[in-house]
Design a protein around this nucleic acid. Structure first.
Ligand SMILES: [Mn+2]
Ligand SMILES: [Mn+2]
Ligand SMILES: [Mn+2]
Ligand SMILES: [Mn+2]
Lengths: 228, 228
DNA sequence: TACTCGATTTAGGTATGCCTAAATATTAGG
DNA sequence: CCTAATATTTAGGCATACCTAAATCGAGTA
């Protein structure tokens, strides 16, 4: 499709950059081809191909040394944050303005993030009052690309009983998102860890409720928390 | 890009179908390759190529006989109306909800129409109260594809002085759209033809104003009217 | 009924982005 | 330090959608 060449950065390139940003964390750790391949659902060969292109573009979008992983360059990071901002603003918009069920916002945002204009971005941000967080609890990069550092931890790293605040829920798996929603597990809610089944999930309770909920390992892996 | 193959109808195919619908009018007249090439800004060779594909697909999207133009099949018409509905709903949404200036809605809609889900379509339609017309005065196809027959005429077909109601303004040229907006020319407004300069435009007045406005031929060609 | 010229199609090529299978490089275990 | 298993890259292909240049078609005129 040679017909939308205005911007030299393609939809695919954006998805790769975003994946590198998320997998590399805010510290910008090196990301392996295999990790990218798994996340983007393409073969490792395709990853190599795209990484070569991203490294060769002007300006370079990544630093890439074969067999040793990739990192975003500053141009790549800027672009990735821009797309991430689109994604999270759109999710917030779908949820707040169009009343989407929480588990449906991600897939729609994943597509639209590549096609909205700067004007669209600006207008929905204004309509939403320039929100800082999306409905999953993830923070939305500012226009200048700045983003407060994330101090949350994974529920699956918890080894002792205790009380926490739910920071965010992973938006990737709609099924899990819906299961957790039904059980009242969402960002900002208080979560008490009652029992730990090594690598097989947790028993928790929500808010001041005494009711014990069993979370599978997969469910638990989707949850990030803050100590109270 | 082999990665969004879920729907066998590509973005490009949609644009071709929509163009055939609009150029062929509601009567479904045959459309020439050249007309399509001009409208879609591609070479005639590319048109031939795509028409062959559209005719060969199952179900066939067009009836096409080489050297003799194309028409939409019923499947093609259904699809074209679906995309046109997306387009016009999005334009209305941008205008009404996101307060876009009228001359900016078209380009954004032209892109987004291909990427919104049925849920998005349904939600914005509901939010807008299931509108029948877009902000340019064009009617929005219903969910089932039905659309009232258009009884408007072109301003440029007017040969005698007289009074009309502005039916719609072409959304294709943002510059003209803005010029006309500034002069108060928009759908629903009363327009009086004061003078006719054969193929070089019109002198008109708006509403009950006495002020004479000079419209170039290009400006006039963008306006459709109804007799009062 | 031919001719001619504009319209249309065919042929051959480019760029993306993806895939599979066959190398090859890295790294961890012995 | 060597080797085997694993990770990664290279090579060769496919599909989409576009383009230019070279045929070819067909409608209107002589
Ligand atoms: Mn998301
Ligand atoms: Mn995406
Ligand atoms: Mn439009
Ligand atoms: Mn379009």
């Amino acid at each position: 499709m040679a017909r939308r060449p205005a911007n030299p950065i393609s939809e695919s390139m954006d998805d790769y950059l975003k994946a590198i940003l998320v997998l590399g964390g805010s510290e910008g750790k090196k990301v392996t081809s295999t990790a990218l391949a798994r996340r983007l659902n393409v073969t490792p060969a395709s990853i190599t191909n795209m990484l070569q292109k991203l490294a060769a573009s002007t300006p370079a979008m990544v630093q890439y040394e074969r067999h040793h992983g990739v990192q975003l360059s500053s141009a790549g990071k800027k672009r990735a944050l821009e797309v991430l901002r689109h994604h999270r603003l759109i999710e917030t918009f779908l949820y707040e303005v169009l009343n989407y069920p929480i588990e449906e916002v991600h897939d729609e945002a994943e597509r639209l993030e590549h096609f909205i204009s700067e004007r669209f971005e600006e207008r929905i941000a204004a309509k939403l009052g320039h929100p800082k967080f999306d409905p999953h609890g993830h923070c939305i990069p500012a226009l200048d690309g700045r983003m407060p550092k994330d101090s949350s931890m994974r529920l699956t790293d918890v080894r002792d009983e205790g009380t926490f605040i739910i920071d965010s829920i992973s938006d990737i798996d709609a099924r899990i998102l819906k299961v957790l929603k039904v059980r009242g597990i969402s960002p900002g809610v208080q979560l008490r860890v009652r029992d730990i089944y090594e690598d097989h999930g947790y028993a928790v309770s929500i808010g001041s409720s005494k009711k014990i909920l069993q979370l599978s390992q997969a469910d638990s892996a989707a949850i990030k928390i803050q100590p109270m």
